[in-house]
Amino acid sequence: MGSIRVENVVKRFGKVEALKGVRLQVQDQEFLVLLGPSGCGKTTLLRIVAGLETPTQGEVYIGERRVTHLPPRLRGIAMVFQNYAIFPHLTVYENVAFGLRMKRRPEAAIRQKVREVAALLRIEELLERYPAQLSGGQRQRVAVARALAVEPEVLLMDEPLSNLDALLRLEMRAELKRLLKETRTTTLYVTHDQVEAMSLADRIAVMRQGEIVQLGTPTEIYHHPADTFVGGFIGNPPMNFLPVVAEGGQVVLDGLRLPSPAERGPLLLGIRAEDLEVFPEPVEGGFAARVLVVEPLGPHLQLTLEREGTTFRALADPGFAAAPGATLYLRPKEGRVRFFHPETGKAL
């Protein structure tokens, strides 16, 4: 079936180590997103699974087959490229039919399959056109249609939405989600957009400098980041990190008392902006901070605050009265505080 297994894959380009021993398993019919900042090796990993790049070390399996040294055409994959890579000299119809023709399907079967995926992607009217006559969004659909037409075991996508404008991206994101629920194709999807990842993924693999630092469902990764990098990378605004000191197994911040994972010593307290309740007066279990910036964002008011030299953010109701310079009181919601090691950044 359409599972993917990547075992200890290392990839070096000369002196650059793009992947440092990656292990990853994508289940059959799963939608797994590779998420990470620019240059972390997402594309390299995807291309290794596609067979467009050979790993320096390690193995790749698709289904039960070891495909490490097979060329792309024998791997049962299809790929959607970031710039779509639609063949400019062929009509949309011929683009979508390309993979089927390579498989020497009978003409009638090809016609039927092209109509079917064209309907799925709503490009029936475009079939006779040439790519130069299409908009960005339409090209994107053609690229996806061409990939789905061959009924791949595994679908690989490299930032397929990054060349679309913001509005179209939202629309195509929802469309892709519907589509892949319908076709149930195992998908490995690369993006550096954390919102896209959260919205599409069954599971997210967060990458950093050639390594997978955390693998989990969007909720797990959002609420239980494995380290400060993941916490800071996922979510907008990023997770807040406040330096605190534990004593006698407790962390005390003004009125806030929390059991700490370490008996004593410095720690980082991680809390998301929306998990801080904001009060104008001192409250039981709250700590004080000074307001630096107030930004009305529509659904809520984003406050940038400062406490003992550390700035952090909190979200308040849009009607909340706050002015720069004022002192406010903040109380973390029950069970939302995380602790991290101050040097390694690892969750404790």
């Binding site: 467009l52 055409r73 890579a85 063949f87």
Partner: peptide
């Protein structure tokens, strides 16, 4: 001619030669 066009042809079932001839 973008390399991706050739790579796309490979993933769609072409050998290197076929991709060269067809794309």
């Amino acid at each position: 001619i973008p390399k991706e066009l050739e790579e796309a042809a490979w993933t769609l079932g072409c050998t290197r030669t076929q991709a060269f001839v067809k794309v």
